[in-house]
Simulated scan of single mutants.
Amino acid sequence: MLETGTVSIGTAGKLDDDVAFILAKAAELNLPKITTLGHEGARDEFARRLSRTNPPAPDGVEAEDILVAGIPARRYGPAGGPKVKAALLYAHGGGFVVGDLETHDPHCRALAAESGSVVISLHYRRAPEHMYPAAIHDAKAALAWLAAEYPGWRLGVAGDSAGGTIAAVLALHARDLGLPLALQILIYPAVDQMGDFPSRQRLGEGYILTRDDIAWFNAQYFGEGRAPLRDTEAAPLYAASHAGLAPALVVTCGFDPLVDEGEAYVEKLRGAGVPVRHVRLEGSVHGCLGLAGYVASGKAALAEASRAWSSVC
């Protein structure tokens, strides 16, 4: 059973020392802004960075590349087969533009190793080649596949950043279909594409994800010059109702431009009677999961996700 409540890790208003070191090092190296490289260059640069900062992959996990409803995916499970009848669909982060099966491979291996379950990592179609709502359509198709492939199993959805948005949308979709989910894991999700919350301005520079980055990702995903949407499938915060959704783990970071909307989503879920565990990484930044090879908060985010999923398997 998911342990609910709010957990604060770190000191409010103070960057963790290891995160501050990473930010200073990145500034010293004068790394190129991903958003200036074009979408293909951005993908290469994002993958290169995460290959250096991701956590090590655990042993004892088997993986195979498969197609899920015609969509590239990777299936993970403990060596010798799953220990529990549970399957988790994971959507990677990357602003709907970057990120792939490789960038999030260690995280999915850790989830499978810790829980003894099957984990399916989905490589949904990315923008700008495939704009909104292509990624959502792929995720919905994958969820239908998951339910058919593992009948009677406990099912869950998870994702970080853009993948967290997808997971939140899938939880709403599953409820509307009458498909029970054991858990939704939302790691620093974007749930308000209008960007009205103060943290998007207050923390819009100097903490890895910037307001300019968000604007660039939105332009790729929604279209140049097109205002971000309040459609439920773009901004799940504005769903007509959040009642009856699966229990949720929501991870937010104190120095993330998306922190305000993530915490608003926590309150929206709680107000609708949804069991929620909210973990606030006070001194961390957006994307810390991809820094888990170096920063304690990234390790904590992954450990919280693994523990939550294991608790409902």
Rank of each mutant, 00 (worst) to 15 (best):
M1P: 12
A12T: 11
K14R: 14
D17W: 09
I22Q: 15
K33D: 15
I34D: 14
T35P: 06
E40Y: 13
A47R: 15
T53G: 03
P56A: 15
A57R: 07
V61P: 01
L67N: 14
R75E: 13
P78K: 02
G81M: 04
A86V: 02
A87D: 04
L88D: 04
G93Y: 02
R109F: 02
S115C: 03
H123Q: 10
Y124G: 02
R126V: 06
R126C: 12
K140Q: 05
K140H: 11
A142N: 12
L146M: 15
G152A: 04
L155S: 09
D160T: 11
S161Y: 10
T165G: 04
V169F: 03
V169L: 07
L170S: 00
L170I: 02
D176K: 09
D176V: 11
L181K: 09
L183M: 06
M194L: 14
F197E: 13
Q201W: 08
G204H: 13
Y207M: 11
Y207G: 11
I214E: 03
F217T: 00
Q220A: 11
E224T: 15
D231F: 05
G244Y: 03
C253R: 14
L258T: 07
E261K: 07
R277N: 02
H278D: 06
L281F: 04
G290H: 13
Y294Q: 12
V295P: 02
L302V: 14
R307M: 04
S310Q: 05
C313V: 07
